[in-house]
Amino acid sequence: MPAPVQSSDPFVPEIYRVGAVRRELADVVTIEIEPESGGRPDFLPGQFNMLYAFGIGEAAISISDETKHGGGFVHTIREVGAVSRALAAMEVGASLGLRGPFGTAWPVAEAEGSDVVVVAGGLGLAPLRPAIEALLARRERYGQLAILVGCRTPEAILYRHELEQWRQRLDIDIEVTVDHASTDWHGNVGVVPSLIRRVAFDPDDTLAYVCGPEVMMRFTASALHEAGVATDKVYLSMERNMKCAVGLCGHCQFGPSFVCKDGPVMRFERISPIFAMREI
């Protein structure tokens, strides 16, 4: 799963240019970026890049897609801090730095022949999107496929267009739920773990990919456990402070793991003893 590639200097960014910008939500923007020279490095679904806004700093942003002709990366960014705000404010043609891709991937190949349950909370759908695309690209190789998405409100549903497109297919179960909604929402209301019992999968032969806020992942992991999915079949994408992304700055430690290189995608079995503890 890990696919680290040693560049000549893993600390120095490559230069990319913004090719397209799309506002997704009130505080979420998707940018398409292409390398200024040379090709885009390969990536695996679930990996992330470190994006650098000139003079402001770097942020770890998951890769949510490749660009249409495969020449660049697509990143979906929530504006939560100085760097993410600067990245989200970039216009077409703007120059930015990129280091990556880093980290572990969703076990897409390992899921062949099995059912797959994908559970996303809020922006957690972004790092899952390349995995969903990979599963759909070779749909015949997998069993049941369920995509469960939870958001705070209907207005906060990320990739609504893509969800609607996926939903048109007859070979996926897609369920969307929101925490709060006004009366003009006719979909599900409630937390995303409650959707798990509504979709069909064989708990003895299912892989689950989960990404969202930690509290959401905790309840989702419990619900999957109750549904009979073993902890070694459940994968979570963790988030921690990151400065270097190459296991040298110490910030992203989560118990014995470095989230940047042993994660972000981690087998739940491996982290379950500390996952429920506070302040690890």
């Binding site: 000139f54 003079g55 402001i56 400065k243 270097c244 700055c249 110490g250």
Partner: peptide
């Protein structure tokens, strides 16, 4: 060995 980074301009 832990480090942080500062970005200056």
């Amino acid at each position: 060995f832990c480090t942080t980074v500062e970005d200056h301009s």
